[in-house]
Amino acid sequence: MSYFIEFRDVSFRYREDQPWVLKDVSFHVQSDEWLAIIGHNGSGKSTIAKLMNGLLLPQKGEILVDGVQVTEDTIWEIRKKVGMVFQNPDNQFVGTTVKDDVAFGMENHGLPRKLMVERIQTSLAAVGMSDYVAHEPHRLSGGQKQRVAIASVLAVAPQLIILDEATAMLDPKGRLEIMETIRNVQEDQDLSLLTITHDLQEVVKADRVIVMNQGSKWLEGTPRDVFSEKDKLRNIGLDTPFVTKLAAELSAAGLPIQREPLNHQELLEDLWTLHSKM
């Protein structure tokens, strides 16, 4: 098993007279896995994202990306491997048209023009935006802009994509667009995915979840493991999905629910099995 990213006892604060935003955080991201990070605003989860590609550098501990430590000298190489999509669709759209925006990252990394033209096509096709090559940003919806942002990241061919609350400002339709896009992209390419989110629907689909609280790692595990720790989640005021709550109440009402359900289908299957036995 290879770790694509490794955090070793990482601590970070913005200024010396301010409290630590991250305290001795250690974890890893494996190659090709989807890791979700949840937690309240201010729990340090966005800081983690910015540390991964050297937008911020830690005061203590070390961060390895593909075996290389993140330092001033390595950030430009690392940024090719770690792509990032931010929250506000408008404030990351640099180009005057869709194709110019997709090209921006490639231009920065000095890719030859011929390759750029090719990759603009393939990456826009991957996010279903091929019909919008020459569109200007103000004629796109929020969800479309975020898809372009994903295409821009894909074009540089990174090994990890970070979505830092990339769906938070979108309407449900836009959110769905992005999640479908991401799922397709992850299936088609060898990519690790890190999503930082509040959306529980997103979390249950990840391979692994880390729960952050006040700068420390609070919980880590598969979505099923994490959501079965209801008390620990409730302690820090985090919500759990509807099926999780319902399953807990069903157990309380006397039904022996065996596994923590992640979606309606799973819960209904288990209920049906119980029903058949009775």
């Binding site: 709550k245 319902l246 109440e249 029903h275 009775m278």
Partner: peptide, 18 residues
């Protein structure tokens, strides 16, 4: 409430006839 729903659902699951 979810608790109330759980009770009604439990009644159906335990309801017997398949």
């Amino acid at each position: 409430s979810i608790a109330q729903l759980a009770k009604e659902l439990t009644a159906i699951v335990k309801g017997g006839e398949s």
